[in-house]
Structures are given as C-alpha cells and as structure tokens.
Amino acid sequence: MKLILTSEVSGLGAPGDVVTVKDGYGRNYLLPRGYAIKWTRGGEKQIATIKKARSTREIRDLGTAQEVAAQLKSLRVTLKTRAGEAGRLFGSITTGDVAEAVKAAGGPDLDRRRIEITNTIKSTGSHRVSVRLHPEVSAALDIEVVAA
C-alpha cells in the first residue's frame, strides 16, 4: 500500500514522505490515526504543502538543534501530578505533559509529537524521555515526577 505521511512516524518517515507499507499496517494503524493519507496523483500536490508546513515547524538547522539539545541536557524538569500512597500515578504522563513541564522549567517550546516516551510513566521518581530535535540530533531529557 502506497501512502503519504502527514505526521512523523518513528522508523518510517517524516511528513510529506511517500512510503510503501503492508496493507494491514496502513489500513488499521496509519490511516485511522491520521498519520497518513492514501497516495494518489492528486495527493502528490499535497506533498508540497505538507513539506512546507513541516519546514516552518522544524528546527532550522543542525547547529540550532545541537544548542537546544545542550539546553535540554542541563535542564531540571519537575512534573507534579496526582499519585497514590505507593507512588503510583492516577493515569500516566503524556508527551503533552512533558512539553508543558519543559516550558514551565524555562526550556524551549517543544512540539509534543517530537517527544518519545519509551516506557509508560505511571509512577513517581526519575524518568528519561528522548526528544527528536532534528533528523540527526536526539536529546535525552531527565524528568522528575513528584506527587502533588
């Protein structure tokens, strides 16, 4: 199945890329979630607008991405949330929560879609998330989850 990506999918591509995937993956995952649209000749025209929108959101160059990565590395991010007695959270921490906490801690304004939480955060304590700043630059960010 040939698709045009409308948002970044880890391991597959960036918005505006034309990819070929297995039918089930495209039909059951990418299309329903809005990560891709079916490839057509008319859809080729949409690629230019998707790539233009991506370039305005994307960090401009490698140097800037490395500066932001250094800034994130030195940043201490504390996220306050509701938790039970044993430190177990009511719900879990989302990428949107992390983006807001980084901004509140004085860090750069991050796009929540660029933040990757590998293990679901459902307890208090120190956790590590990664942020894809540029195709060549990824930064690790330590966050401290505390009970409010």
Results as ranks from 00 to 15, higher is better:
51 K>A: 04
36 A>G: 03
32 P>F: 00
128 R>Y: 11
38 K>C: 05
37 I>W: 01
148 A>N: 08
11 G>F: 04
92 S>K: 00
67 E>C: 14
127 H>A: 00
115 I>E: 10
8 E>M: 13
116 E>P: 02
66 Q>N: 12
99 A>N: 07
62 L>D: 12
120 T>I: 10
137 V>W: 03
61 D>W: 09
47 I>H: 07
39 W>R: 11
90 F>S: 09
97 D>V: 09
112 R>G: 03
100 E>K: 13
104 A>C: 02
106 G>D: 11
11 G>R: 06
69 A>R: 13
76 R>L: 10
133 L>I: 08
77 V>W: 10
111 D>S: 09
134 H>I: 07
98 V>S: 04
16 G>C: 02
113 R>A: 13
84 G>I: 02
104 A>T: 03
138 S>R: 12
39 W>Q: 13
25 Y>A: 08
99 A>C: 06
44 E>D: 03
106 G>I: 08
103 K>P: 07
60 R>M: 12
133 L>P: 11
19 V>Q: 04
66 Q>L: 10
135 P>S: 00
60 R>S: 15
9 V>D: 06
75 L>Y: 06
78 T>W: 02
37 I>D: 11
32 P>Q: 02
42 G>H: 12
121 I>Y: 04
90 F>H: 14
23 D>A: 05
94 T>A: 05
136 E>G: 01
60 R>Y: 13
56 T>K: 09
41 R>Q: 05
90 F>E: 11
83 A>G: 14
122 K>R: 12
89 L>H: 09
1 M>C: 12
24 G>C: 09
61 D>C: 06
107 G>S: 09
12 L>D: 02
101 A>Y: 15
94 T>M: 02
28 N>D: 07
53 A>I: 11
15 P>L: 03
147 A>R: 08
132 R>W: 04
1 M>L: 14
140 A>R: 08
31 L>Q: 02
62 L>T: 10
66 Q>E: 15
82 R>V: 05
129 V>A: 00
17 D>N: 14
54 R>Q: 09
5 L>V: 04
31 L>E: 05
100 E>P: 02
94 T>P: 00
121 I>D: 08
122 K>G: 07
61 D>N: 15
71 Q>P: 05
6 T>K: 14
18 V>F: 01
31 L>T: 03
58 E>G: 05
24 G>N: 10
105 A>N: 03
87 G>S: 04
65 A>Y: 02
126 S>P: 06
12 L>A: 01
8 E>R: 14
102 V>E: 00
46 Q>C: 06
56 T>D: 04
135 P>R: 01
94 T>S: 11
96 G>R: 08
131 V>C: 09
